[in-house]
Design a protein around this nucleic acid. Structure first.
Lengths: 332, 332
DNA sequence: CTGTTAGCGCCTTCAG
DNA sequence: CTGAAGGCGCTAACAG
């Protein structure tokens, strides 16, 4: 049925060894022998078995893409990252196997064991939260890994994420440059890693641009539309003088827009609004949303690249911050 | 380094064979022997190598998820389907490997050969178009496959897609039930498979509900927002009496909404609008979009299920139509 | 009930 | 330059 290296050897009248060498570019094969082998291999449409090769080489050239909480939202983000990971890995000749924490949990085995069973050489992790029980495993295991969007760093674990601090700074700078005086900030869950960074970015930027702000013009919401609307209502009741608000996510910002519409607040005339994430939706709301974009595809491909270097060049993992981009639309 | 079956055998004082049997639930092992083996295996944290097992069993328990045109538009569609495929396959103990047509093309090998190299037992195909050169290969190869959203059927190839005809019918029925008299239809590319079905559905539904319509109240656009807006303008200039329009995609429908806003046409009072796809965006536009939803996750998991049955029960592939759902919001 | 033997398809010393 | 032999980790007859 399937044609193996043995069939090629027989048809070419040489040994299996010679076929292996000819196909893998060994320099110790006669030129005409090699040609003959190549021809035969092609005629027979021979495909070397990756499984057999993996077994003997003890390398699978297969990398896991661990998705924590697979079926939760966050689609835009995940899909783009996934494509970036895949493309880069394919470029280097690695396959990618989908791994979900759910599956491992079901089978009651650790994710590292899950990967070991499959001889995965490394893992790109995405969608994981700081309070996820897997975090410890990822950081401490010797299985090479690169985490996306969470600053986990260890001997075998690197990360790639957006430079949140600068992302926030770009937004604030834009608001300052367009003459805003009273800038509020609606952040996400206070314990989320990105929230902490974005808060840091906000404070740093406000200081850097010489803007005063009070502690209670910084609110927290839950990353949802409703939460954003409610938080903005809150903020405005405390500080009616507010003329600009930076939201730590687009969804919350859109909630803010809806609130303004309902209250007759004009955007951006009365109030400027900037979000964070650049979800597709932002282009289509009215007014369209000014936002800070994360380079999703690049985050994936850079993570993949780091992992490959760890694997092939034995490079140390590191933390990479990717530059965000301010996308100016109508809302600010 | 890694603990193999041999280590377990030694530690338990039995032969490799016995370990294999004990672990795989063979009934020809003494109960106490089995217990001892299991204990030792657990203590050593032994994990059987899938690679080795694949080689000897000639089964990889690995399925490819072929994504045509990977980096094209950020399809939420793709992501949901992908998750559905993964979950179902994981349930049955299959791994899923990402395969993109780009990669195969780059390596100048057919996608079937690509899968053969990796010993993939079958493939779920998504994002492929009727005019894709891979279609022929998918249909004719003996590699078991299930295609999503394209009715390809052969000895080794089944499909899962949304029942477009009924989806359209639900939309039309809703318009009729809410008293609309002059219903227009803005379809997608005329050669796209789904467009053909949706047209069929439209005509059948109009007939079934006794609604008159003229040929030129059926237009084609290109699935984009701009295209939808333009097509609607066209339609209304030809048929000013139109009081409802069904769009073959949400994006086009949103274009329609924008056009109406620009022209002062009130939705749904003057004109009812229904889309197709249930993209996330639809919930957030104003007015929010009534639309026909496809069961994306189920499409993925059903496709996976069919494939598993083809593999395990040697079942014939078939064509499955999944029921769509009308989601009524403000626009109609 | 248990161990021995023979591979799965491939790569890699080690001898010619 | 080429081939023979051994083995990667595991399973499956075939004997005891």
């Amino acid at each position: 049925m399937t044609v193996t290296i043995r069939d090629v050897a027989r048809a070419a009248g040489v040994s299996i060894t010679t076929v292996s060498r000819a196909l893998n570019g060994g320099d110790d094969v006669g030129e005409e022998t090699r040609q003959r082998v190549l021809e035969v291999a092609k005629k027979l449409n021979y495909r070397p078995s990756h499984v057999a090769r993996s077994l003997v080489l003890q390398k699978s050239r297969n990398i896991g893409l661990l998705v924590s909480d697979f079926n939760r939202g966050g689609h835009h983000f995940m899909y783009d990252v996934l494509v970036g990971v895949h493309d880069k890995l394919a470029e280097y000749g690695y396959d990618v196997t989908l791994v979900s924490t759910n599956t491992a949990r079901q089978q009651l085995i650790s994710y590292v064991d899950f990967c070991r069973e499959r001889s995965l050489e490394g893992v790109v992790v995405m969608g994981i939260r700081l309070d996820d029980p897997y975090v410890e495993e990822v950081v401490e295991s010797t299985l090479p890994s690169v985490v996306i969007d969470l600053p986990l760093l260890s001997r075998h674990c690197g990360y790639v994420m957006t430079d949140n601090v600068n992302g926030v700074r770009y937004a604030i700078r834009h608001l300052v440059n367009t003459g805003r005086q009273h800038i509020g900030f609606i952040n996400g869950y206070s314990h989320a890693a990105v929230s902490i960074e974005r808060l840091r970015g906000f404070e740093a930027a406000m200081r850097a641009y010489g803007m005063a702000y009070s502690r209670d013009s910084i609110l927290h919401a839950d990353f949802t539309i409703e939460g954003g609307a409610k938080a903005l209502a809150d903020l405005l009741s405390r500080h009616p003088e507010t003329d600009a608000v930076f939201f730590a996510s687009d969804l919350m910002a859109i909630g803010g827009i809806q609130h303004c519409k309902a209250c007759g607040i004009r955007i951006p005339d009365d109030l400027a609004i900037i979000g964070f994430d650049n979800i597709e939706l932002g282009r289509f709301v009215t007014p369209s949303l000014t936002t800070v974009a994360q380079p999703r595809y690049e985050m994936g491909s850079d993570a993949a690249e780091m992992l490959v270097r760890m694997l092939q060049e034995d490079e140390q993992p590191s933390g990479t911050l990717l530059p965000p981009e301010l996308i100016v639309r109508e809302s600010a």
